[in-house]
Write a protein that binds this DNA or RNA. Structure first.
Lengths: 244, 244
DNA sequence: ATTTTTTGATAGCATTACTATCATTTTCAC
DNA sequence: GTGAAAATGATAGTAATGCTATCAAAAAAT
């Protein structure tokens, strides 16, 4: 089981000074993940972070303009990591259906089978993404952020999965929407099972692996159920008669 | 076209004093919606709100403990409003498939065909829900909030849709997960089409109604595609061979 | 008409989200 | 190893935020 000590390429607009290149920078990333997991994004701030590292507030501000940029940086890290894992694990697979199933597994399961980046605890980062990831793009200034390319990695991840979907069935109507839905549905159901169980059918028995398996199964059901289905065209017709 | 001047029942744990019962309270709700839409949830605060109403910061604090409670209050309003609209519009429908299609239409389309509550602009509230609704439950203290019943209305909405799904096909494995996915997918794709178009296949030509139609069509495709499909059991088997 | 409730105005306080300055330490070139 | 340059730490300061408290004025209820 190999371990990679890669530097992931993150959009430079997200930082003032590349945190991957210095010891302090890496500590900032490492402990941001731990601290956000512990106290949540709203309670997290640069003062608390610098107390823990330990460093000074001013020093953290030399790396990141503000908490939001740091947070989006972490999400980009996660998205890039997902892309890399999907690439690595589908390299030698030719059957697109198998590829797709592997990709679904990777979305759900962050147990680092063969990628491991020194200073980021990917399991914990994944927890943060599941709990609070949507905040990265659900806000008033999304267009501005988007203009700086803050979501390029998410789009790439989506498009990678969408491309596999299209490989399985090239005439599928909604590859990108299905891809984004699968990612969001995976995260939502992991979260719901733990915190709002009446919003899902999956059950959290406290065992991570069992819940992951349930989510994978359901994602596969949704994804292949839609892709391999030939009988929708008729059900679309009944569209007119309602809401008179 | 009737207009209802109903008071929606909102969980009393969300407020200190019932805002629906006083003039000032209703102004708080009305202008919260407008102001959050305008400046976004993060920039919104009670000072700015009270300057606009106009009233005083202290007075707003007499109705809501803090901004988060007010925000969740608005979401509960939205959820209750959706429940009421679904009930009202499916009352006389017996065919569960038709019911389901009507429900999907209601999730997407907030044009008030026959419900209208005096002081809340539902179109704008819907915009807020689409953009920032997920923040209501994606945070560290979700379990505490859940303990106070802050998400009961969302669960009710989900379960109402899940129940219709089960009516259409009682052996469907994931009615609740499908229901929550449909709701979140509707909102996400409305948002993506506008702000992150590479995450969806729908196109925003600036026309609300055209986009709504596309989303409705896609939701129907996803929903009925899954429910009316009989051929998944075999595709589930191929689960073992990967990730060796 | 007066009591009770609601609201407005003001003040205040601890925390947050930064920015600026300058001294000190570390890194790097030679 | 020495000196210059860069990175960090320490401290201070400011404007905004998220409240709480107090008291007087206005509105509503009896």
């Amino acid at each position: 089981m190999k371990s990679f000590f890669v530097q992931l390429e993150i959009n430079p607009n997200l930082y003032l000074k590349d945190p991957q290149k210095t010891k302090l920078g890496r500590k900032i990333i490492e402990h941001s993940v731990l601290l956000i997991d512990e106290i949540g994004l709203e309670q997290f701030n640069f003062k608390k972070l610098s107390d823990i590292i330990p460093s000074s507030e001013a020093s953290v501000y030399r790396y990141f303009e503000n908490k939001h940029h740091l947070f989006v940086y972490l999400l980009n890290w996660y998205w890039e990591w997902m892309i890399a894992r999907i690439e690595l694990n589908t390299l030698n697979i030719t059957d697109p259906k198998v590829k797709l199933r592997v990709a679904l597994g990777i979305i759900v399961d962050t147990a680092n089978r063969n990628m491991d980046i020194e200073f980021v605890d990917e399991e914990i980062l994944h927890k943060i993404v599941v709990r609070e990831g949507a905040k990265a793009y659900h806000h008033k200034l999304v267009d501005e952020d988007n203009g700086y390319g803050f979501f390029l990695s998410y789009k790439e991840l989506c498009n990678k999965i969408a491309a596999i979907i299209s490989e399985v069935r090239e005439d599928f109507l909604y590859p990108k929407a299905l891809a984004s839905t699968l990612i969001e549905t995976a995260n939502n159901n992991l979260y719901f099972a733990r915190h709002l169980p009446r919003l899902t059918d999956l059950s959290d028995e406290g065992d991570d692996q069992s819940l992951n398996e349930q989510v994978k199964k359901m994602l596969g059901f949704f994804c292949f159920g839609l892709i391999e289905n030939n009988s929708h065209s008729d059900s679309l017709i009944k569209d007119m008669e309602m809401r008179n």
